[in-house]
Computed example of a mutant assay.
Amino acid sequence: MRFATPTRRQPPESIVPMINVVFLLLIFFLMTAQIAPPDPFEMALPQAGQQAEIAGDAVLWLSAEGIPALSGQTGDAAWAALGALDPDTPVTIRADRALPAVDLARVLQRLGALGFSAIELAVQP
């Protein structure tokens, strides 16, 4: 009696390499993404006719009450962090539009006393 040889079934293609590629791409995009930290205060920037490109490396946030924030630190800790920076570092001020001009002038005086000369004010066009 002659039996037919069974046909060999091909194993299904493995999807493991595809999963590996997808996870590698996911990791790549997560590592290269620029995730902006949240604003320390809820604020509305002052209005202006035009806005130039902001080049400040250090961003000093000022709330409507005049509370400063820098790199996640607020109050006196923010001033201490500013004092630790190189005075040649450009500083960008993001002040709430409700901040009185007198308080902004005091902040500018304090920045000048710390030796900062390149100071920009961020505005909303």
Rank of each mutant, 00 (worst) to 15 (best):
A55P: 04
A64R: 02
A58C: 08
Q73I: 10
R8E: 05
E42P: 03
V21M: 15
L24D: 08
G56F: 00
T74P: 04
L24N: 07
F28A: 11
S14I: 12
L24M: 14
D39E: 08
Q50V: 12
I67R: 13
A58P: 03
A33S: 04
M31F: 07
D57Y: 11
R9K: 14
Q50M: 07
G66C: 01
A33K: 03
A80S: 12
E65P: 00
D39P: 01
R8A: 13
L60P: 00
P68T: 00
P37K: 04
A52S: 03
R9I: 13
P68V: 01
Q47D: 08
W61K: 10
P46G: 00
M18K: 14
P40S: 04
D57P: 06
A36M: 10
V59K: 05
D39R: 12
G66V: 07
A64Y: 07
T32W: 05
G49V: 07
L24Q: 11
L45P: 01
T74I: 07
V16Q: 13
V59Y: 02
A33F: 01
R8C: 08
E13F: 15
A78W: 04
A52P: 00
T74L: 07
D57W: 12
Q50I: 11
I35H: 08
R8M: 12
I15E: 14
L60E: 05
F41V: 06
P40L: 04
Q47C: 04
G66Y: 04
P17T: 10
N20T: 15
V59S: 01
R9D: 13
P37L: 03
F29H: 09
V16P: 06
A52Y: 01
L25N: 08
P11A: 09
V22I: 15
G56S: 00
R9Y: 14
